[in-house]
């Protein structure tokens, strides 16, 4: 099907975009990469009167990697971040997650911020940003505010954004030294939204024990789900096979995941246990590297 008619605006300055958004209110939709929005327009699930295309706002097209961390503007495509060797080195977990987002052809258009604003509960990037402790920078005609990733996602397809606000940037703080990470997921077909995904981070201490472990799952709940009970089990351990078995069992016993057309709650629970265990064993693989030459 084809999109219903809309009035098209294509500002080149951020202030112009915010002003337009303020005037048009909830009669307008922001068009970023269009990889989620345009399918909905074509299906006519949405038919906004106005479309505000932010692809020509040059200020939003920038990203920077500094001593403080990574800043990604709303115009930056997923593929740009995926292809940066410096970002792959600094945030391997982000790179791994990106290679699992849809297909190259989609990532060539889709933006990082668009995926976060869209807030699909099965998407990879929201859980990675929660694990990384990222901050969302949100602008409107009246000012700027920052929201922690952990508080930004409200429900499936619902974020903290108000209609007149633009998520202009996401900030990812620099990771502590010796941080190891992994992203794991189970998908039916390559490029599909995953049944379950897990972003994991942690640090090996001098005694060979994992500390500050973060485990955040996608696809399990309406928002990225931080498995604090599982983090408590693994922190301070050597992630021995026995620990991994215990965590996997505890994940399966504790969760009550979403049921949908893709799979049952029961199967998803089993898959979550497996995905978490696999992610943790990838952290084990990196123990030597983290305590070695670096």
């Amino acid at each position: 099907m084809k999109s219903a008619p809309f009035k098209y605006y294509v500002p080149s300055e951020i202030d112009e975009a915010l002003e337009l958004l303020y005037q048009l209110g909830d009669e307008a939709k922001i068009l970023a990469g269009g990889q989620s929005l345009v399918p909905m327009l074509n299906y006519r699930l949405l038919s906004p009167a106005n479309l505000l295309d932010i692809n020509r706002v040059s200020e939003l097209k920038r990203y920077s990697l500094t001593d403080e961390g990574l800043k990604i503007g709303a115009g930056v495509r997923q593929r740009e971040i995926e292809l940066s060797p410096e970002i792959e080195l600094a945030f391997p977990v982000l790179h791994q997650a990106l290679t699992n987002v849809a297909h190259v052809q989609i990532r060539n258009r889709g933006t990082i911020c668009g995926s976060l604003a869209h807030a699909d509960s099965a998407a990879e990037l929201p859980s990675v940003m929660v694990a990384l402790g990222a901050q969302m920078v949100i602008r409107s005609g009246v000012g700027v505010r920052a929201v922690k990733a952990e508080e930004f996602f409200k429900f499936h397809l619902t974020s903290d954004l108000e209609p007149a606000e633009i998520l202009t940037e996401v900030h990812v703080p620099k990771l502590p030294a010796k941080t190891v990470g992994a992203f794991e997921e189970v998908t039916r077909r390559k490029g599909d939204f995953a049944l379950v995904g897990a972003a994991l981070l942690g640090q090996w201490d001098a005694n060979g024990q994992i500390q500050n472990c973060r485990i955040v799952c996608s696809g399990v709940a309406p928002v990225p789900l931080r498995l604090r009970f599982a983090e408590d089990i693994v922190n301070g351990t050597d992630l021995s096979d026995q620990v991994l078995v215990n965590v996997q069992q505890s994940v399966m016993d504790s969760l009550d995941p979403t049921e949908d057309i893709h799979t049952s709650s029961h199967y998803r629970k089993i898959v979550t246990g497996v995905v978490v265990r696999r992610g943790l064993s990838r952290l084990v693989d990196q123990r030597g590297a983290a305590n070695g030459s670096r």
Binding site: V38, R79, V104, Q105, I106
Partner: peptide, 27 residues
């Protein structure tokens, strides 16, 4: 499909393969 799933509409824009059903001509 006209919603990004099949890839039949793939073209190359400025050296990158994209789905032409998920872009407006004006863009």
């Amino acid at each position: 499909c006209e919603h990004g799933s099949c890839g039949a509409c793939t073209v190359i824009i400025d050296d990158r393969a994209v789905r032409s059903c998920l872009m407006f001509a004006v863009q």
